[in-house]
Simulated assay, not measured.
Amino acid sequence: MAKTKMAEHMTKGAGFIAALDQSGGSTPKALRLYGVEESAYSTDAEMFDMVHAMRARIMKSPAFNGEKVVGAILFEATMDRDVDGIPTAQYLWEKRGVVPFLKIDKGLEDEANGVQLLKPIPGLTELLARAAKAGIFGTKERSVINAANPKGIEAIVAQQFALGAEVTAAGLMPILEPEVTITIADKAEAEELLRDAILRHLDALPAGQKVMLKLSLPTKANHYKALVDHPAVMKVVALSGGYSRDEANRMLSQNAGMIASFSRALSEGLNAGQTDAEFDATLAKAIDAIHAASVAG
């Protein structure tokens, strides 16, 4: 079965996960960094056409394959579109050897107790069923920690694991993403609380059930090693969170067992005006560097 092969590839593959899941709020910035100004489109439909073209160009590049890119996280509209006439998730797995994931979160609640919980996800059951039918392996759901507040961090971890249980019940692998904002003064303290809360919830999972974790690069190297080694964790992936690619790669290389799941850091330097040769060379350089940092530990 494809799902079994995908699970094996995620577990054993020596590579990283590409985050190609910019949504409505972050899409204009992603396009601007790609050299496409807001004056180039006048509707959301045109904007998403352009960002899909950018993502498809990345996916079709020779360097973007399962040897170094083991997975890719997609925005819902990307899952619903095609690449070269093939549904995106199917294209990724069958043509590139890359395991497809789907971003399912729909934004954040206002901050309370130093965290921003996930907003409710309307139509979640239908979305998960659609994702499974499309060949998606797993999901990603992001919430945010802005302070080392024990009550808030416990709430955010509990919500992530509750949603993860729904995803698991739908036959998909959840990537739980309680992101710690990298600029907060008490980041290290928040990471202590977060690690301990995650460990408590991992220990309470039913036997045989697994999750993946997507976490901000920690202040202290190997801070999340206990999570990497936990039997209920398929993989721990790191988000770049605003660090430059070089800084993110440097930090990642110091964390044994963690792999990258970078978005902006992956597409850094890519431009709509580049020739295919220039684009492919720039992307290959980024993939090589992120891959090297992911396997360094």
Score class of each variant (00 low, 15 high):
S39A: 10
T43A: 15
D105H: 14
E189C: 04
L283F: 06
S39M: 13
R264C: 07
F262A: 08
D280F: 07
S26L: 14
Q22D: 10
R55N: 09
P62M: 03
I182C: 01
L227M: 03
A221I: 07
K210V: 14
D203F: 07
D82I: 02
K103P: 07
D288G: 10
I104C: 01
E177G: 07
R32G: 06
N113I: 00
G171K: 10
L176W: 13
T27L: 02
Q116P: 05
A207F: 10
A260R: 00
N113G: 08
E192I: 09
A169R: 08
G241R: 03
T183Y: 12
S26R: 02
L118G: 02
S261N: 01
A170Q: 09
F262T: 11
F64R: 02
S216T: 11
V237N: 01
M47Y: 04
I86K: 05
G164T: 09
K119R: 13
D80F: 09
E76W: 02
I136M: 07
S267T: 12
A169W: 11
Q160I: 00
V228L: 10
P87D: 04
G138V: 00
K210E: 05
D21T: 11
K220G: 06
L270I: 07
D276V: 11
M47S: 06
I145D: 12
L202V: 04
I17N: 09
A132K: 05
D280C: 06
T139D: 04
L20H: 00
A260P: 04
E191I: 13
Q274T: 09
A284N: 11
Q22V: 04
R96Y: 02
I259N: 00
T219I: 12
I198W: 04
I156D: 00
D44S: 14
F161G: 01
M1C: 10
A45K: 12
T282R: 15
R81C: 07
H201F: 02
G241K: 03
D105F: 10
R142D: 08
V51P: 00
M212V: 11
I58D: 04
D82K: 11
S267P: 01
D21S: 08
E76R: 05
I184W: 03
G13S: 04
E37S: 12
F48W: 13
Y91L: 02
I175M: 12
N222V: 06
T125W: 09
A190R: 00
L239Y: 01
L205N: 01
R130M: 09
I290M: 06
L227N: 03
A238P: 01
G152V: 02
I17R: 11
A158F: 05
V70T: 06
M47E: 13
H230C: 08
D84T: 15
L102H: 05
S267C: 14
R195L: 15
K103D: 02
V36T: 13
A89G: 05
R81D: 09
V237H: 00
A134Q: 07
D186S: 08
T168L: 13
K12W: 04
M1L: 12
I136P: 02
G152S: 10
K29H: 14
S61T: 14
F161Q: 03
A248K: 05
K5M: 15
A277P: 00
M54S: 03
A148T: 05
L199M: 10
A265P: 00
K285T: 14
G208L: 10
A286Q: 05
A72F: 14
E126Y: 09
A170R: 14
